[in-house]
Each structure stands twice: as structure tokens, then as C-alpha cells.
Lab assay of single mutants.
Amino acid sequence: MSGIALSRLAQERKAWRKDHPFGFVAVPTKNPDGTMNLMNWECAIPGKKGTPWEGGLFKLRMLFKDDYPSSPPKCKFEPPLFHPNVYPSGTVCLSILEEDKDWRPAITIKQILLGIQELLNEPNIQDPAQAEAYTIYCQNRVEYEKRVRAQAKKFAPS
């Protein structure tokens, strides 16, 4: 494992614990031996107030490669969400998460999670990743928002 990646992720964890947006979660997972795995984080993004996503808490896994922060983490909703920019596998399609697009090593975990929260309610229809959600979003916004509200209710924190 890269010392650069681990040191950056340790800084990220410290900064997150000191200050993070209300309702968001970002925690490194534990290895079988109980030690912390900084390369694999369990996160959760709350649906934004005043949107059909409100009330939901959407679980996301963030996986970092050894060359982080040169390369972005892979962000994957578990379980996958109904959304035009979420692949059926759950992987998020967002330009700041793509090395050859808008990724920059200075982007923080907090910025990534806030960017994904923004994307939930403002899909990028130029870059669809899920045919069904994309089609319904474009053709029947009322039905799309109904499905999103049902999903938010399903993923409401207990």
C-alpha cells in the first residue's frame, strides 16, 4: 500500500471527524483483525431537504486505489439507486470521479460526498449510466419523482 495514499486518507479521516456536513457519514471499514482499512470507507449521503430525495439516507462505498490521490476513489451505492447517473452496479457516474475528466488530487472526501448529493437531485442527462431511470427522467418527470420519493422512504434511517 502506498504511504502517500494512507497518509492522505488519515488526514481526510481526521478532517472529517473534526468537521463534516450534518447527516453525512464517512467511516473507514475494519479489517478482520480489527485494524482500520483506510482504503475502503462506508459512507452515507442524506437526501437534500426540499427535494424528492429528502428523508432518505443512501449508503455508498468509497474504494481507494494505491495511487490515490492521483486517481479518484470508486464510489458505489449499496444497494444501487434508481438514478440516471448511477450504473446498474451502483457505481456513480460523475465527472469529478473520473481521472480523465474533472478529478483533481486536491478534491476531498467531503467535496465528493457533497457533489454526489447535488447530483442526486440534478442528474447530468449528457452522461446517462442507467437506461430506465434516464428514460423516465426525460419522458415523465412526475413518475420519476414518485419513484425517487418511494426510494427515499425505503432508505429512511430507522
Rank of each mutant, 00 (worst) to 15 (best):
K18A: 05
V86F: 12
F77H: 01
E145W: 07
P73I: 08
R61L: 11
P80F: 12
Y87W: 06
K49C: 08
F82S: 00
L57F: 08
Y68S: 04
R8I: 00
Q117S: 11
E143W: 08
K154Q: 13
T91K: 05
C75N: 06
K110T: 05
G47F: 06
V25T: 07
M1P: 05
N140Y: 07
E122N: 13
N121F: 03
E143G: 09
I107H: 11
R141V: 10
A26L: 08
K18L: 04
K76F: 15
K110S: 07
Y87E: 03
P72Q: 09
E99M: 11
C43K: 02
I4S: 04
K30R: 14
P73C: 10
G34E: 09
Q130W: 13
E118H: 12
P123D: 01
D127R: 02
E54F: 13
L114D: 09
Q130K: 03
P128F: 01
S89D: 13
Y137C: 04
I4T: 06
S2A: 08
E42A: 14
S95Y: 06
D100H: 14
Y144F: 04
T29H: 12
N140S: 10
D127A: 05
G55K: 09
A15S: 13
A129P: 03
D100S: 15
A10H: 05
K76T: 15
E12F: 02
L6M: 15
Q126P: 04
R13C: 01
F58R: 04
M36R: 10
K30N: 06
K49H: 14
G115Q: 02
W53G: 00
C138T: 15
S158H: 11
G50A: 11
I136G: 02
M1R: 01
N124Q: 00
K30Q: 07
E54D: 06
A106R: 00
K154G: 03
G3P: 09
F24V: 05
K49Q: 10
S95F: 00
A10Q: 10
Y144N: 02
D100E: 08
E42H: 07
S7F: 03
G50V: 08
G50R: 13
S70N: 14
M36Y: 07
D19P: 05
D19C: 04
P69I: 01
Q126D: 10
A152P: 01
L38N: 00
K49Y: 09
W53N: 07
N31W: 10
S7N: 14
K49M: 09
A10E: 01
S95V: 03
S2Y: 12
S7C: 10
K30F: 07
E12C: 00
E143F: 07
I96W: 03
Y68L: 02
M39E: 14
M1N: 06
